[in-house]
């Protein structure tokens, strides 16, 4: 008989055989690894930028998924459209983006069943259709839930589109569940490089209500170019979407035009140049 305290309450080895410790944590002789959560993103997308204009929103993100500093995948579409009113732009971990995409798909199915629109035309004009604001609230709750589980979705999101009243809507949510909104928004490096440029054109809400669609698209394209010039995790092929009352116009194979690298040889302080 084994009288050691660690054997108390355990099945007797001589009767039942060796106790199977495989479910126990390593500290108790088991083989089970401790539960681990994402400590850092692995395959990542860089900035997402967006501007509100008079009747809608423009949003853009490049098509690159980096593995560290390696440009690993060059055809990853980081703008996800949801019904005909909203587009979600995703920066950060790409696998978490794919999870969110599946979440959006199932939400879309749920929505189309529950609102009780029976025909395609009916659902086109459905006054109860989820607006971008509703989608943003939902996503921000998902992000906050996951961070509260200490298992965050390692993303920064921009939700762009029209709200319930068909007014332009733009807001962000990040891995902490923090939300912001504004007439111009940018995640990641874009917050440093693109946001000041966009704010020069659209300093406040009133200015965005004066801004035309063409100017907004041009401003976003200009910002994408600056981002490619200065963000080392970016590429010249990008996706751009315009959402207004006509619906979502999403282009996923845009290429930066008229690049000029003249400024490059004047840059000092990096790499091998000796002033």
């Amino acid at each position: 008989m084994n009288h050691f305290p660690q054997a108390w309450g355990r099945p007797r080895d001589d009767v039942y055989g060796q106790y199977n410790p495989s479910y126990l944590p390593q500290s108790h002789g088991g083989t089970q690894q401790p539960i681990t959560h994402t400590q850092s993103p692995i395959v990542t997308g860089t900035s997402v930028i967006a501007i509100k204009f008079k009747t809608g929103v423009v949003i853009a993100a490049d098509n690159l998924a980096s593995y560290g500093s390696l440009a690993r995948f060059t055809d990853v579409h980081r703008l996800k459209h949801f019904n005909r009113k909203s587009v979600v732009g995703v920066g950060g971990d790409v696998s978490d983006m794919q999870y969110l995409d599946r979440l959006l798909k199932s939400l879309d199915v749920e929505e189309n069943y529950s609102t009780g629109s029976h025909t395609a035309e009916e659902s086109e004009t459905d006054p109860a259709m989820m607006g971008a604001n509703n989608l943003h609230t939902y996503l921000s709750k998902v992000m906050y839930k996951r961070r509260s589980d200490f298992n965050p979705l390692w993303n920064a999101l921009l939700v762009a589109g029209l709200d319930e009243k068909n007014k332009p809507f733009l807001a962000s949510a990040d891995l902490l569940g923090t939300t912001f909104s504004g007439p111009t928004m940018a995640t990641g490096f874009g917050a440093h490089l693109a946001q000041p440029i966009m704010r020069r054109i659209v300093p406040d809400e009133a200015a965005s209500q004066q801004l035309g669609r063409e100017e907004a698209v041009q401003a976003v394209r200009d910002c994408m170019k600056v981002l490619f010039y200065r963000d080392a995790r970016s590429m010249p092929e990008y996706s751009i979407a315009v959402i207004d009352e006509k619906g979502v116009e999403l282009k996923e194979k845009e290429v930066l035009e008229n690049q000029s690298w003249d400024f490059a040889d004047k840059i000092r302080g990096y790499g091998t140049q000796t002033v």
């Binding site: 529950s114 609102t115 009780g116 989820m130 509703n134 609230t137 939902y138 709750k141 319930e164």
Partner: peptide, 15 residues
């Protein structure tokens, strides 16, 4: 209201 920031549809709550 909490998760979607919208009032529930009457058809929805009824079903």
């Amino acid at each position: 209201r909490l998760t979607y920031d919208r009032p529930i549809l009457l058809s929805d709550i009824t079903s």
